[in-house]
Amino acid sequence: MLGIFRKKKKETKIVYRYPNEKVVIFIDGGNMFHATNALKLKINYKKLVEILRKDRWLLRAYFYTGIPSGDLPKEVREQLKKQMGFLKELQNIGIKVKTMPLKKTPEGYIEKGIDILIATDMISLAFKNAYDTVVLVSGDSDFVPVVEKIQELGKRVENASFKKTSSYELRRVCDEFILLDNIKHRFTTPLYPETEKETNKDLFAKFINGIKKFLTRSKK
């Protein structure tokens, strides 16, 4: 009778490795932006790619994002200029950038078609046998059927994302999951370092100085 109350052992996925494993990395820029913006972090994508590729042969890393187009307000044009500078930096470090126009709505600009573009490239390269393992940097559950199709082609799929935008369904279906929150110190810096909260060391120093001033006044 007591056996029914025993906890089931947690299933662990077996990680298989290919000899001379070829890997491709697909980064969902919009998904990463929402996560890092909420966490107030800035990503060093060169370091991130190196972490995710491990000791494997990297075919290429892709970065996907939407960009505004058409007759743009001044503030949007200024933002676009910064974005294009950022995308140029990515290309300079060897990351292939792919973009699509953002869709304008009464509420602002939204991404449309980015997930389809990523999915098409992932499946296309899988059919061409260009890689053994694909690393999908996104938390979007829409990629679940894409992952399953790629696995049917005999490829491994790893998923990397921040907890803030991570999908349980996507994590579950992939062969391996990397929680970026656990390793963020290796590839991120604070987005606004000058406005960071005081560290415990700073607060302790202020506390000690306050006591010293109080004791000085008490002696007078």
Rank of each mutant, 00 (worst) to 15 (best):
V76M: 11
K82T: 08
K40V: 07
Q79W: 06
I116Q: 13
E107R: 14
V76T: 15
I110Y: 02
R56T: 05
A38V: 12
V97I: 12
K40D: 12
V76P: 01
K81W: 10
D71W: 07
K81I: 11
T105N: 11
A61K: 00
L41Q: 13
K104M: 10
N31T: 10
Y64G: 00
G70Q: 12
L72D: 04
G30E: 04
Y64C: 02
I51Y: 08
L80F: 04
K42T: 13
K103A: 12
L39W: 03
M100E: 14
I114Q: 02
G66Q: 02
E75S: 15
A35H: 01
Q83N: 04
L58Y: 04
S69K: 12
K98P: 03
R77L: 15
P73F: 11
A35N: 00
E75K: 12
L72G: 04
K112R: 14
I116M: 15
Y62L: 05
Q83T: 14
L52H: 11
I51S: 07
I67Q: 09
L102R: 06
L117R: 11
L52F: 12
I110C: 06
K42D: 07
L52W: 10
I67P: 05
L90H: 03
I67Y: 06
T65A: 11
K112G: 06
F63M: 03
I114N: 00
R56N: 09
T105M: 14
K112M: 07
W57Y: 12
E75R: 13
M32Q: 13
H34M: 14
I114M: 10
G30I: 03
K47V: 05
P106T: 08
K98E: 11
L48S: 01
G30C: 06
T105W: 09
Q91R: 15
K81V: 13
E75G: 05
L39V: 08
Y62A: 01
R56W: 09
G66I: 03
L117Q: 14
Q79I: 01
E111T: 13
M32F: 09
L39T: 07
Y62P: 00
N92W: 01
G29L: 05
I51L: 15
V49T: 12
R77A: 08
L48N: 05
I114G: 00
K42R: 15
I95K: 02
L39H: 06
E50I: 05
W57Q: 13
L102W: 02
S69R: 08
G85Q: 06
I95E: 02
D71R: 14
K40A: 13
G30A: 11
P73G: 11
G113W: 02
N92A: 09
N44G: 03
I51G: 12
E111A: 11
W57V: 13
L48W: 01
A61N: 01
H34G: 04
K81A: 14
D55V: 07
V76L: 12
